[in-house]
Design a protein around this nucleic acid. Structure first.
Lengths: 144, 144
DNA sequence: ATCATTGCAAAAGATTTGCATGTCC
DNA sequence: GGACATGCAAATCTTTTGCAATGAT
């Protein structure tokens, strides 16, 4: 699975925004601060490269990236958003026990999308499908 | 579509909890404070019946209801959780523009569940599937 | 009467905002 | 040089927690 990272400098300028070092560092962190990182993780990682990057800048930047579709903000159940830089169509399998998020690619999802759109006139965003449940580790443990 | 409300007094006692007026009012609010209500909506509605119910009690009660599977806490993208008292299997179509949440029932979802479980060993909770996109109203408007 | 539950107020997180300073183009 | 971005600190919002008072069983 070769995820394709956008040329972010170009992308920013195309949209009329400046390519600042903070933005580059934050974009880098999105891919390297772990899978589907939280804001805190992103900040902590970006800070390694440039210790002065502030949390507020991280928030503002993620907002901006979301606006220009460089990342997807993921809904959260624990009060802290996570971000997904992956551009290929996929759905997220989210473990409600340990928080693990697993990407899942399947053709079949397209059929489901069409079926929903035929039946409801709701316009499905494939980038934003979250399915909750238990990852294999957690489903093998005893219940809480 | 006749949604079946649980006998909540019985359900609470079966689980060893007291059936207090606050809990009954909050359960009632879950069904009547609008579709997939936020905590604020639930509190505001419950308060009509009993003006002294505190927000903290609403939070504690929703926590409890979630624990004994009387409701499902929904992940959120705007920082305020929503609750879904519906027990029948369904998925939620969430409009990322206006926040509308539409229930969707379809047999086909079962196939998808099985396909995912066959392919990944992830255990899908059908009660917790959220698909984001645009409702029909919002998809007909011009973009932001 | 007992012990779970409530309400209040304070605390803890997460995110946003205003504004002076710094810096990309 | 000038507009845009950043960083700081304060503000806002949501949710959690501790504890004394209350009330369900």
């Amino acid at each position: 699975m070769t995820a394709v990272r956008t040329d972010i400098t170009k992308r920013l300028r195309q949209n009329g925004f400046r390519a600042t070092p903070q933005r580059l560092a934050i974009y880098d962190a999105l891919w390297n601060a772990g899978s589907h990182p939280t804001v805190a993780k992103i900040h902590s990682y970006a800070t390694k490269r440039d210790p002065t990057i502030s949390l507020a800048t991280v928030y503002k930047t993620l907002q901006l990236f979301t606006d220009i579709d460089l990342v997807n903000e993921m809904p959260s159940i624990d009060g802290s958003a996570r971000y997904d830089p992956e551009q290929e169509e996929h759905i997220n399998l989210v473990c409600t026990n340990c928080g693990l998020i697993e990407d899942y690619h399947l053709e079949q999802m397209d059929e489901m999308k069409s079926a929903i759109e035929r039946a409801t006139s709701f316009k499905v965003n494939m980038q934003s499908i979250e399915i909750y449940g238990l990852c294999s580790k957690c489903s093998h443990k005893t219940k809480t």
